[in-house]
Computed example of a mutant assay.
Amino acid sequence: MFYVKEYSREIIATIVLIAILIVLRMVIAKLVRRFASTSQLFEHRTNLVIKYINILMNILVTTSLIVIWGVQTEDIFITISSIATVIGVAMFAQWSILSNVTSGMILFFSFPFRIGDTIKIHDKDFPIEAEIVDINTFHVSLRTKEGEKIIFPNNLLLQKGISIMPSHYEEKEFFD
């Protein structure tokens, strides 16, 4: 009982913060789903974006809880700088993965093309004309007229010029 009285401010702040997190998660998920439905985006892509936003919110709430419970500021900075250093080294080694995830998020919100569109990628060394079969977090799956399956990284897709071609393929219905 002594701890409840001594830490009542921290307990109340923690409860309020967790309540805010729950409400924000619901509101943001609803907003992203509404955006996805008006843009006619696929459910699995919408769920990925919601997942990324939830991870970011969890990191912010965890940091806030550390501050609420009175961890010394210098300890927080030492811990965060150590974690940032390790993550920075790891991400530098894996920059293409991070770049592809970021590009996937950009493609989700700007979405210049959709599954089923035929695109032409303007690359002087390896020009590609193919139908988009799937758009994932890291890559886009393409299928050429000859039936060749090509996996193209999202970050390269944003760097190259793209033309959306009139459909040469038969009309298909795509399911999520």
Rank of each mutant, 00 (worst) to 15 (best):
Y3T: 10
E6R: 14
Y7H: 14
R9S: 12
E10L: 01
E10W: 03
I15E: 05
L17D: 02
I18F: 08
I18Y: 05
I18S: 07
I20V: 15
I20R: 01
I20S: 09
V23Q: 01
L24D: 06
L24S: 14
V27E: 09
V32S: 09
R33Y: 06
R34I: 11
S37F: 02
S37M: 07
S37R: 07
S39C: 04
S39R: 10
S39V: 01
L41V: 03
F42C: 00
R45G: 14
T46P: 05
N47M: 09
L48Y: 05
V49S: 02
I50S: 06
N54M: 09
I55S: 09
N58P: 01
T62P: 00
T63K: 03
T63F: 15
S64C: 12
S64T: 13
I66E: 02
I68T: 12
W69M: 07
W69V: 08
W69A: 03
G70C: 04
G70S: 08
V71L: 08
Q72N: 12
Q72K: 11
Q72W: 02
T73F: 07
F77H: 07
I78V: 14
T79Y: 13
T79R: 05
S82P: 00
T85A: 14
T85S: 13
I87G: 02
I87N: 02
G88I: 12
V89S: 06
A90P: 00
Q94P: 00
W95R: 15
W95T: 00
I97D: 00
L98D: 00
L98E: 01
V101Y: 00
T102K: 04
T102I: 12
G104V: 08
M105C: 13
F109W: 15
S110E: 09
P112I: 08
F113Y: 15
I115R: 14
G116D: 08
T118I: 09
K120I: 12
H122S: 09
D123H: 14
I128Q: 04
E129F: 02
A130I: 04
E131R: 15
V133F: 05
V133Y: 06
V133P: 00
D134R: 13
D134L: 06
D134K: 13
I135T: 06
I135Y: 03
N136D: 14
T137P: 01
F138S: 08
F138K: 06
H139I: 11
V140T: 15
S141W: 01
L142A: 04
T144Q: 10
K145P: 00
K145W: 02
K145H: 11
E146R: 14
E148K: 15
K149P: 00
I150F: 11
P153Y: 09
N154F: 00
N154G: 05
L156W: 04
L158I: 13
I162V: 15
S163G: 03
S163Q: 07
I164C: 05
S167E: 11
H168A: 05
E170W: 01
E170R: 11
E171L: 13
E171D: 10
K172S: 11
D176G: 11
